[in-house]
């Protein structure tokens, strides 16, 4: 409960921090916020080339299929990578002023969330112009997004505080995220995973979320609520564990940085 009160008292800091993150990211680049579009589009192009043209995936409308998974995945991976760096990057503020430290990971998750909302335009573009069209089911997007937000908060609490004590984590996470990318049904369908390896996909909350996004955009159906519930439960557990770790470790942030 203290966290809610703190966040309310420091809401202006949270707001300016998010604005700084969203606006500051591309502040000195010529193309500015356009990078939010170019970057994922280029990635889609690369993966589409490899998996559709070279490896000849048998999924219909592969580019659209891919894009429904890749864009949410990019949100997740930036949360992990930027979350891991956020305490260290803000070291000079942490060493000088008191403020609730939780604000830092929370604003990473929120500002990346804003970027994700913007990039969702790409999914919409592909769905509409890729011959699939829209259904009312896309409104479930906000529910799935909310669950992904909760999962991301939990994960960012853990990675941001651990990295302070264990700097290698930043580099390890880069590799880990790449592995996890292939352990999540983004470039392939979950049904093509051999039964013996299914558990790897199933312990990953992002699998359920990406399946959810895909259901509403690509299949135009309702998401599987049972799967979303599992992801939500995982998210809540991650938040509780993450918050506990963060609170335990934050007391020595200023000394370790």
């Amino acid at each position: 409960m203290n966290l809610v009160k703190d966040l309310y008292n420091y809401r202006e800091l949270l707001k300016t921090n998010i604005k700084k993150d969203v606006g500051g990211k591309y502040k000195n680049s010529v193309l500015g916020v356009l990078w939010s579009f170019i970057n994922p589009l280029l990635q889609i192009a690369v993966y589409a080339l490899v998996f559709q043209v070279i490896l000849k995936s048998d999924i219909d409308n592969y580019t659209v299929y891919l894009c429904c998974g890749l864009i949410p995945w990019q949100y997740f991976s930036s949360v992990v990578l930027r979350g891991a760096a956020t305490i260290i990057d803000n070291g000079n503020i942490i060493k000088k002023v008191y403020f609730p430290r939780e604000i830092l990971p929370i604003s990473v998750v929120t500002s990346e969330g804003v970027n994700f909302l913007i990039s969702t335009i790409i999914i919409l573009g592909f769905v509409i112009f890729g011959g699939i069209g829209l259904s009312w089911n896309v409104l479930w997007y906000f529910l799935i997004f909310a669950i992904q937000f909760i999962v991301s908060i939990g994960v960012s609490f853990i990675v941001s505080s651990l990295t302070v004590y264990f700097r290698d984590l930043q580099h390890l996470l880069g590799i880990f995220i790449q592995l996890l990318f292939y352990a999540t049904p983004i470039v392939y369908a979950i049904s093509s995973v051999p039964a013996g390896l299914q558990w790897i996909v199933k312990i990953n909350p992002m699998s359920y979320l990406i399946e959810g996004y895909r259901a509403i955009f690509y299949n135009k159906t309702m998401p599987d609520f049972q799967e979303l519930l599992i992801a939500l439960a995982m998210g809540i557990v991650l938040c509780i564990i993450g918050y506990f770790i963060f609170k335990k470790l934050e007391k020595k942030f200023a000394e370790e940085l």
Partner: peptide, 17 residues
């Protein structure tokens, strides 16, 4: 990279304003 004015908002908000 932010102007003095933007930093006033940022810094003062750290103090909870």
């Amino acid at each position: 990279d932010f102007s003095g004015r933007e930093n006033i908002y940022f810094n003062a908000s750290i103090f909870g304003l």
